[in-house]
């Protein structure tokens, strides 16, 4: 059964892939087993993360990146993440509007994903969705994250190349320093370069990057100017992405990143298994008793947690 499903995905069947993505998001019982069978077929695609302040032009950039990568005969997956409303649990996923002209290109698979309460600019299902696109044989996977100021750093742990998008004179620089983005982004893009102050923003950013001390074999992030709406600077951006890829592949960078990602996935899996196990196995009454004990200060959170985890691990 799953062999058939895996084969269909490997052949690039869109409906099957789309359904599995949904199953993962919704926590469908069989989806996780299917993912497990698909896993050996993943790890080939090159993952590019795109993050930055809201409205900076990320989706428009993704649209032009798709066009340019397609012209170079590469296929793409796009994961476009937008926030879930904390009040209603619903979401308007609007990134796709800017990329719709690629909707009918069979070399492009675009999927809109809601965060569903996940922090860090990603969604819990994002990693699995990337894997599915990877298994479908997409060469490049672009991941557009939610722009939420200080928390978008997560994507850099997932991506091979991380792009940070900002706009002229937006004063994002200080924010970026605080969020530690300067340290983790591989390429900086000042989009909306048609607006005033673009070259100044570029210079400021370069100065800040210059302050960062780095060994000489390290990648030096560059700052590019783009006008996504006018399709200007995109060829250069694609060149830079491929240059970074070549840099990673020629050194130890690639292996390091893949290892980091595997570690992230493992940690994630441990945490969620443990959580699921506790949710379904720990006696609710016992949990409530611990809560009461905490309120009465008869125990402390750490000790209470050990009691639960001790129980779970012993089985």
């Amino acid at each position: 059964m799953t062999v058939e499903l895996v084969n269909r995905i490997l052949e690039g069947d869109v409906r099957t892939a789309a359904r599995l993505m949904r199953g993962i998001e919704d926590g469908a019982a069989d989806a996780f087993g299917e993912m497990a069978d698909l896993y050996p077929h993943t790890g080939k695609a090159y993952i590019v993360g795109i993050t930055g302040a809201p409205g900076g032009g990320k989706s428009t950039l993704v649209d032009t990146l798709i066009t340019t990568f397609r012209q170079r005969d590469m296929t793409l997956g796009v994961v476009a993440i937008d926030p879930t409303s904390p009040f209603t649990g619903g979401a308007i996923l609007g990134d796709r509007v800017r990329m719709q002209k690629h909707s009918t290109d069979s070399g492009v698979f675009i999927r809109s994903v809601a965060t569903r309460g996940w922090l860090g600019g990603l969604a819990r299902a994002a990693v699995s969705i990337i894997h599915i696109m990877d298994a479908m044989g997409k060469d490049i996977i672009l991941v557009e994250t939610v722009g939420i100021g200080q928390q978008e750093v997560d994507v850099t742990r997932l991506a091979d190349t991380s792009i940070f998008v900002l706009t002229p004179g937006s004063g994002d620089a200080i924010q970026m320093m605080k969020a530690g983005i300067l340290e983790v982004a591989d390429i900086f893009v000042v989009n909306k370069a048609d607006l005033e102050g673009a070259s100044r923003s570029k210079m400021e950013l370069q100065a800040m990057l210059g302050m960062k001390s780095g060994a000489c074999e390290e990648w030096e992030p560059s700052v590019l100017l783009t006008e996504a709406v006018n399709n200007i600077g995109i060829e250069e951006l694609v060149d830079e992405i491929l240059k970074h890829q070549a840099f990673l592949v020629s050194g130890e960078g690639m292996e390091k990143r893949r290892k980091e990602r595997a570690r992230l996935e493992l940690t994630e899996a441990i945490e969620s298994s443990l959580k699921d196990y506790i949710d379904s196995n720990v006696d609710k009454a016992f949990l409530e008793k611990l809560v009461d004990d905490l309120v009465q200060r008869r125990t402390n959170p750490q000790a209470a947690a050990s009691q639960i985890i001790g129980k779970s691990i012993k089985r």
Partner: peptide, 10 residues
């Protein structure tokens, strides 16, 4: 969205 659905606007 306010009903709790995920809406893809094209």
């Amino acid at each position: 969205r306010d009903t709790g659905y995920e809406v893809i606007y094209t």
